[in-house]
Lab assay of single mutants.
Amino acid sequence: DTLHVTQDGKHIELRGLSEEEIKLVEELLRRGRKVEEALKIIEELRK
């Protein structure tokens, strides 16, 4: 699936995420994380 995010005035499209990963990214962003940080966390969880 694809998640569309706008952060720091930039539109970012995150592709290839599972539904659970999207929920996790959304939660991390709500808690003030940056998109880059959220993606690093997803990458770690995929290992």
Rank of each mutant, 00 (worst) to 15 (best):
D1A: 10
D1P: 15
D1H: 15
D1R: 03
D1F: 07
D1W: 01
D1E: 11
D1G: 15
T2M: 09
T2A: 05
T2G: 11
T2S: 12
T2I: 14
T2D: 08
T2F: 08
T2N: 10
L3N: 08
L3E: 07
L3F: 05
L3C: 12
L3D: 08
L3T: 10
L3M: 12
L3I: 12
H4G: 08
H4K: 06
H4M: 10
H4T: 13
H4R: 04
H4Y: 04
V5E: 06
V5R: 01
V5Q: 07
V5M: 06
V5G: 07
T6A: 08
T6H: 13
T6W: 15
T6K: 04
T6N: 10
Q7C: 04
Q7I: 11
Q7E: 15
Q7P: 06
Q7N: 10
Q7Y: 02
Q7L: 08
D8C: 05
D8A: 05
D8R: 00
G9Y: 03
G9R: 01
G9E: 09
G9M: 03
G9Q: 04
K10I: 15
K10L: 15
K10T: 13
K10M: 14
K10F: 10
H11W: 13
H11R: 06
H11M: 06
H11I: 13
H11N: 11
H11Q: 08
H11V: 15
I12L: 07
I12M: 09
I12Q: 07
I12W: 15
I12C: 06
I12Y: 15
I12K: 05
E13M: 08
E13Y: 10
E13G: 05
E13S: 10
E13W: 10
E13N: 08
E13Q: 10
E13D: 10
E13H: 08
L14Q: 03
L14Y: 04
L14N: 04
L14D: 04
L14I: 15
L14M: 06
R15F: 15
R15M: 12
R15G: 12
R15C: 05
R15P: 09
R15I: 13
G16T: 03
G16Q: 06
G16L: 06
G16C: 04
G16P: 04
G16H: 06
L17Y: 10
L17T: 00
L17H: 02
L17Q: 00
L17G: 01
S18L: 07
S18Q: 05
S18Y: 05
S18K: 07
E19P: 15
E19Q: 15
E19W: 14
E19C: 07
E19D: 12
E19H: 14
E19K: 15
E19T: 14
E20K: 13
E20S: 13
E20T: 13
E20G: 12
E20D: 14
E20R: 10
E20V: 13
E20H: 11
E20M: 14
E20Y: 12
E20N: 13
E21W: 02
E21I: 02
E21M: 02
E21A: 01
E21H: 02
E21P: 00
E21T: 02
E21F: 02
I22D: 02
I22G: 08
I22Q: 09
I22L: 09
I22A: 12
I22R: 14
I22V: 11
I22F: 10
K23G: 09
K23E: 11
K23L: 13
K23H: 11
K23Q: 12
K23F: 11
L24C: 03
L24D: 01
L24K: 06
L24V: 10
L24P: 00
L24T: 07
L24M: 12
L24A: 05
V25P: 00
V25R: 00
V25M: 09
V25I: 13
V25W: 04
E26D: 10
E26W: 13
E26P: 01
E26Q: 14
E26H: 13
E26F: 14
E26A: 09
E26Y: 14
E26V: 15
E26N: 14
E27K: 10
E27W: 12
E27L: 12
E27M: 13
E27A: 11
E27R: 07
L28W: 11
L28C: 03
L28Q: 05
L28I: 08
L28R: 00
L28D: 01
L29A: 02
L29P: 00
L29R: 03
L29S: 01
L29D: 00
L29T: 05
R30M: 11
R30Q: 11
R30N: 09
R30W: 08
R30S: 12
R30F: 08
R30V: 08
R31I: 14
R31D: 11
R31N: 14
R31K: 12
R31Y: 13
R31M: 14
G32R: 01
G32Y: 02
G32C: 03
G32P: 01
G32K: 02
G32L: 01
R33L: 15
R33F: 15
R33T: 15
R33A: 15
K34T: 11
K34Q: 08
K34D: 10
K34R: 13
K34C: 02
K34S: 14
K34V: 07
K34N: 12
K34A: 09
V35A: 05
V35S: 03
V35Q: 03
V35R: 02
E36G: 07
E36Y: 10
E37T: 05
A38W: 01
A38H: 00
A38Y: 02
A38R: 00
A38V: 15
A38L: 10
L39R: 04
L39Y: 05
L39G: 01
L39S: 02
L39K: 04
L39M: 13
L39C: 03
L39H: 02
L39T: 03
K40C: 11
K40S: 12
K40I: 10
K40P: 01
K40W: 11
K40V: 11
K40G: 09
K40Y: 10
I41M: 12
I41S: 04
I41L: 11
I41F: 12
I42V: 11
I42E: 00
I42L: 09
I42K: 00
I42H: 00
I42T: 01
E43V: 08
E43H: 08
E43Q: 10
E43W: 08
E43P: 00
E43D: 13
E43N: 08
E43I: 06
E44D: 12
E44Q: 09
E44G: 07
E44R: 05
E44H: 08
L45H: 06
L45F: 07
L45P: 00
L45T: 06
L45Y: 07
L45K: 05
L45C: 04
L45V: 06
R46S: 02
R46N: 03
R46W: 03
R46Y: 03
R46D: 01
R46Q: 04
R46A: 03
K47F: 14
K47L: 15
K47R: 10
K47P: 05
